[in-house]
């Protein structure tokens, strides 16, 4: 199926513009509604049993990031997916406490 058919020709989700590293996890509502969804949507919800980024979903479906963004944005807008966004300060950079946790984690490897 061509990519434009997956997204009904849209290149943006009307409701969300997610960064490539945004994490998603499936919600209870998503699990309940799963049977009525398209194969691509079901694949996303199944994979999102564990936290998964937009980039990983694009790779999983074999579609460009822009297509994954629309598919995930729609599922998130319907509350079938929970979105976990990066935490940035007013300067647009990751918050200091986050960098400190990252440093601790990397040093422990």
């Amino acid at each position: 199926m061509p990519n434009y058919a997956l997204t009904a020709g849209r290149t943006r989700s009307a409701r969300m513009d997610l960064p490539i590293e945004a994490l998603v996890t499936v919600t209870e509502l998503g699990l309940a509604q799963r049977p009525g969804l398209s194969p691509e949507q079901r694949t996303i919800l199944d994979a999102a049993a564990e936290p998964l980024s937009l980039a990983e979903i694009g790779s999983l479906l074999g579609v460009p990031i822009g297509v994954a963004r629309v598919l995930v944005g729609d599922l998130a807008a319907d509350d079938y997916l929970a979105v976990h966004l990066p935490l940035v300060g007013t300067d647009g950079r990751p918050r200091r406490e986050l960098l400190e946790r990252l440093l601790d984690g990397l040093r422990a490897r």
Partner: peptide
Amino acid sequence: DFGRITVDDRIVLYLF
């Protein structure tokens, strides 16, 4: 190309 490092129970680092 991208990769993933689970840093701790909350932080996931992606490398692009």
